[in-house]
Design a protein around this nucleic acid. Structure first.
Lengths: 202, 202
DNA sequence: TTGTCAAGACGATACGTCTCGCCTTCTTCT
DNA sequence: AGAAGAAGGCGAGACGTATCGTCTTGACAA
């Protein structure tokens, strides 16, 4: 048996229409920015993209999956994600965390990003894919940079770098999720300073 | 003008049926636990609660609002939320963070909690209410406990306690949101230790 | 008398499946 | 090589179902 469900014949990806694919992704991004995720419907995407509904259902399992692909950087090799390494771990982390703040505050990305973040709570499989294809490559870049800092003696050698990462980015995402206080560069700097103080050798 | 929309006449809360209210909240919790938030419908709640749909629409603006009220502790005075203070800030924080981990891992609460967390991303007004009535009272308890630690010289006096809190709970919620690594008591302890190391006086 | 209540009818909307020609691409036959 | 199918994605939209939020009815309680 080839397919999990014998009735489900997989579509032939080699015959796929790239123009339609792009039109769908662009339409989804436009609409979610205009009216929000709850009013983003498959029918509206199809209408704006000038596409049949079946063309969407054929290639994506949900509107969240469409939005996910629409947010994916296209030709970007995940392995190219790299953090700066000037030798000064504090300066480098501040640079990166400030960049994260800028991305989270980017008005063009906010609607789809929040929609996807929300959707991962109720759709663990989507969350798994998002983690694997977007989050994990970035975390691996952190891992490499923090190991480098450990070898330089700037971070205690016995610290689990995965936990170190969460100490750095957790507070930023928490503030973004809860919208309690403004997410600023100053905040990123303070978090970097305090976290590094906790991570440095005694 | 009394109402924002003249046509909207406010219902008379004094004549409200408490039995129906409880049946609705209980039904909502049951259903979201069984089939998830996306399949939680107003019609299903009304049917299971033995209630007319209008009785739900009359008192709540959305299914998320119903779930929110269903998750609210009933007779609990928010001011009574208090963190332990044994004088040992590290031990106390570990106790509290372990409790948070236990709550986040509680199978009965997981479905509604994730659903509400997701909904706050796309509904800022709901997020505001959830922050005000659930999150903020707990944060205030943290503020009091951390100020006490500052007075005892266990935490640097020049640190913004709001940021200190985010350093403590941010990593926990980040792991809960992303489901990357297991959320355990050991993790809570490590976060408390590392964060406190960053917060302690130099 | 007034207003909530349970029940459910109602039109609107979006769902996901399907059917229909149209068109492109690949295969086969002369 | 060129013509004639064969296969399958495509745009369009009809279809039945589900849920939406509003509205109506009659019972009941304050």
């Amino acid at each position: 048996m080839v397919n999990k469900t014998p009735a489900a014949k997989a579509p032939d990806a080699t015959r796929r229409n790239e123009r339609s694919r792009r039109a769908i992704l662009d339409a989804a991004l436009e609409i979610v920015g205009e009216v929000g995720f709850s009013k983003l419907t498959i029918e509206a995407i199809a209408a704006r993209a000038g596409v049949g509904k079946q063309t969407i259902y054929r290639w994506w399992p949900s509107k969240a999956a469409v939005l996910f692909e629409a947010c994916m950087p296209e030709g970007l090799d995940p392995l190219t994600v790299e953090l700066p390494d000037t030798g000064d771990i504090e300066a480098d982390l501040k640079t990166v965390l400030r960049g994260t703040v800028d991305e989270l505050r980017n008005p063009k990305l906010e609607a789809p990003t929040r929609a996807l973040s929300a959707e991962t709570q109720n759709d663990p499989e989507l969350g798994r894919q998002l983690t694997e294809r977007i989050l994990e490559p970035q975390l691996q870049a952190y891992v490499r940079r923090l190991r480098s800092a450990q070898e330089a003696g700037q971070i205690a050698a016995d610290i689990d770098v995965r936990i170190a990462i969460e100490l750095l980015v957790g507070p930023l995402f928490h503030r973004w999720h809860t919208r309690t206080l403004p997410l600023t560069h100053e905040y990123a700097d303070t978090v970097a300073e305090l976290a590094l103080r906790g991570l440095s050798p005694r």
